[in-house]
Amino acid sequence: MPIYVVGAGPGDPKLLTLRAVELLREADVVAYGDLVPEELVHTYAPQAEKIKIGHKKSEHDAVVERLVEKAAGWARVVVLKNGDPTLFGRGIQICKKAEARGVPCEVVPGVSAFTAAAALHKIELTDGKTLRHVALFSFPHFDEDILGNIAADTAVIFMMGERLDVVRRAIERNCKKGVEVFVCHAVSMGGSCQQVKIEKLDTFNGYKPVLIIVRRCKS
Rank of each mutant, 00 (worst) to 15 (best):
Y4T: 00
G9M: 02
P10F: 01
G11K: 10
P13S: 08
P13T: 08
L15N: 02
L16A: 05
L16E: 04
L18P: 13
A20H: 04
V21H: 02
R25M: 07
A27D: 03
D28C: 06
V30M: 09
Y32I: 11
L35N: 11
L35P: 01
P37F: 15
P37I: 15
P37L: 15
E38A: 15
E39M: 12
V41H: 03
V41W: 14
H42S: 11
T43M: 10
Y44P: 00
P46V: 01
P46K: 07
I53F: 04
K57Y: 10
K57A: 11
S58P: 04
E59V: 05
D61K: 08
R66F: 00
V68G: 01
E69R: 09
A72W: 06
A75H: 13
V78T: 09
V79P: 14
K81I: 00
F88E: 07
F88I: 05
F88G: 02
G89C: 00
G91L: 01
I92Q: 12
Q93D: 15
K97L: 15
A98F: 10
A98I: 12
A98W: 13
R101N: 05
G102W: 15
V103W: 14
C105H: 12
E106K: 08
V107S: 13
V108M: 12
A116W: 01
A116C: 04
A118S: 14
L120F: 08
I123H: 08
L125Y: 05
T126V: 14
G128N: 06
G128Q: 09
H133V: 09
H133A: 13
A135Q: 11
L136Q: 12
S138F: 02
D145S: 09
D145H: 10
I146P: 14
I146V: 15
G148D: 11
N149D: 09
A152S: 14
A152P: 01
V156F: 07
F158P: 06
L164C: 06
L164G: 05
D165N: 09
V166T: 13
V166F: 04
I171Y: 10
K176W: 02
K176S: 03
K177M: 03
V181Y: 05
V183R: 09
A186S: 11
A186C: 06
V187Q: 10
V187K: 12
S188P: 10
G190L: 08
S192R: 07
S192M: 10
S192Q: 02
C193S: 06
C193Y: 03
K197C: 00
I198V: 14
I198T: 11
I198M: 00
I198A: 04
E199F: 02
T203K: 13
G206M: 11
V210S: 14
L211C: 05
V214D: 06
